[in-house]
Design a protein around this nucleic acid. Structure first.
Lengths: 203, 203
DNA sequence: GTCTATACGGCGATAGAC
DNA sequence: GTCTATCGCCGTATAGAC
């Protein structure tokens, strides 16, 4: 890990087209669908429409592509929360977040949570070899922190624990939606989660 | 898949020692710790203390070991629920189930839910090649069904949805406990889940 | 900077001696 | 039934032409 997005970037040369970014987001997508271990570099190269041998110009190892994929998820999260921050009420922001998850229910039914399943897979690695699992944990913490901020703005003193509960609920929904291959689980459990939010908000 | 436990069993010969079962439960354990894709047959052979070449006498392919591991989880679930069924009150059964999860918090922090992470990994496979993901789903459904039965005995008309919520909560707890590498998440969220049960029970 | 050809290692699976 | 030796494939990574 280290600097995430910047590690391994060839400098002193014209970056020209965003091949590196194309590879990173292709990696994130293919890792989501196939898992890291079942995905070959040639799968990613094909998805990004880049010749196999050329991948190594941008990423020296497969693990660097995993790192880039984590960075890609981090960026996606930032974009989403920036959007949500436009909404005036914290309660509406959280509900809109749930709404977005429900919209992605078909994808979740087939492949699970794009980020949760990646983090789970990385956690099977032996400790200390690489810090990729910790890099993934940082993104998860960023989500929790954003949710916590909303609960704080709602005046909840127990915001930290509520935030963990909230994200926990989502990850659980995603797992069951995926394992049961049933998008309706996301819909019904998402509604329950939204209802729970209403019981917390001060009238 | 097909017959789960029986598939590929050599018949017409003396089974003698339970090597097959040793291999199956070793497979379940190693798959949990390393994931299916990162686990080699030699890892499993070593864990079961069986020579590598001999594995193929009991299991023709690696996938058959995955199938056996799923069967092993199924059996573990049966043992646990049989234990819990000894308790007279359904509410106590559910709380005892949560208590068991909390006891396993250290393992969950390091490797996640033994069954949930396996099912999640199998769901990354392409459809139709093997039915292993569906076999895993059946075990998850069995857990949900048992939980649902407890809610039904509690007189809840919405037992099916409550059961899904309950298992969802656990899977989510397990994911965050694992990703954050923090056993305390399981403790605190487990307590929340138990408290939630109390709010449901008729006074 | 781009791409092809290939080296290298590892793992699933098999053959066949005992 | 048990175990060793080994085959063959595939995937990561490299060398080096263009």
């Amino acid at each position: 890990m280290t600097d995430s997005k910047l590690a391994g970037k060839p400098d002193g040369a014209k970056p020209k087209s965003g091949k590196r970014e194309r590879l990173a987001s292709a990696a994130a997508q293919v890792f989501h669908q196939q898992g890291v271990e079942r995905t070959t570099l040639s799968d990613i190269a094909a998805a990004a429409d880049v010749p196999l041998g050329n991948v190594y110009y941008y990423f020296k190892t497969k693990d660097q592509l995993v790192e880039a994929a984590i960075g890609s998820h981090q960026e996606s999260l930032r974009v989403v929360t920036d959007q949500l921050d436009q909404l005036p009420a914290p309660l509406d922001r959280l509900k809109a977040l749930i709404g977005g998850w429900i919209e992605q229910r078909e994808t979740a039914a087939r492949y699970g949570c794009p980020f949760g399943t990646l983090a789970t897979e990385l956690d099977k690695r032996e400790d200390g070899l690489d810090g990729l699992d910790r890099a993934a944990a940082a993104v998860m913490r960023a989500l929790i922190a954003w949710v916590e901020e909303q609960f704080t703005q709602l005046g909840r003193a127990d915001a930290p624990e509520l935030a963990v509960s909230f994200v926990t609920a989502y990850q659980g929904m995603a797992v069951l939606t995926n394992v049961l291959r049933d998008p309706e689980v996301m819909t019904s459990q998402g509604r329950r989660l939204a209802d729970w939010l209403d019981t917390l908000a001060p009238a």
